[in-house]
Each structure stands twice: as C-alpha cells, then as structure tokens.
Amino acid sequence: MAGRAVPWPSWWLLVLFLIPWGISLAILEERHEATVRQRRMDLTEDLRQVVGHLRRLADPPAALTEQIERYRRALRWDVRSASRLARRLQPVARLFFSTSRDAGNPCRA
C-alpha cells in the first residue's frame, strides 16, 4: 500500500512518546531490584539471628543458662514439665530449692 509518507515531526514525536515508556520500565526495574535486595537482606538478617541462636544453644554455658531459665519458668507455670526438665538437668546440675516459708531449710529439688 502506497500510503503517504509520515512527516518527520510525527516520527520525532513518536520517539518522544517512547521516552516515558522507557523511563517507566527503567524505574520499574530499579524498584524491583530494590525490593529483591531488601528481601535478601531481610533473609540474611534472619539467618544470622537463627545462626546466633544455634550458637547459643550449642554453647554449654549458654545452653545450661537457658535450660535453667526454662526450669525456673516451668516451676511457676507447669510443675510437671519442671520435674521433666529437672531430670534432664540431673546429670550436669544440682538444684536446691527453698520456699520463702522454710528459708534456711532447703530441700533438694
């Protein structure tokens, strides 16, 4: 089809119209990268915390401290699990418990 040739200003304006399209694509790309970067950073931070916790759990003094804390909490909230925890602690820890009523007359937990 031998249509009339499009005059040069129209071509130029078409190119001009493509500029915002290109910019928007570039911005979308940038935002996508920022999102992915943020997500990776968040996951890395999560993993660092998990690993820190892993390290504490595997460190004997820290693990022991944590178990004793759990035992203390269990004494208050769930005596049955406290006795279970005490049994677990038995090979490594000696626990003596005294109530305020019989202070000075402690009994072996």
Binding site: L64, L75, R76, L89, S100, A109
Partner: peptide, 23 residues
C-alpha cells in the same frame, strides 16, 4: 541463687550448681 516462684503464690529461691564441662 535465683529467686523463683512455684505455682501461683509461693516464692522461693533456687540454688543451682551446674558443671557445664559434663555436657
């Protein structure tokens, strides 16, 4: 020596001696 509560109201003290080299 750690203060602790037993149940809802009783207060007490826990004396702990733990050998962590046995772990």
């Amino acid at each position: 020596m750690l203060p602790c509560r037993v149940g809802r109201r009783r207060q007490g003290t826990l004396l702990v001696i733990a050998d962590y080299d046995r772990m």
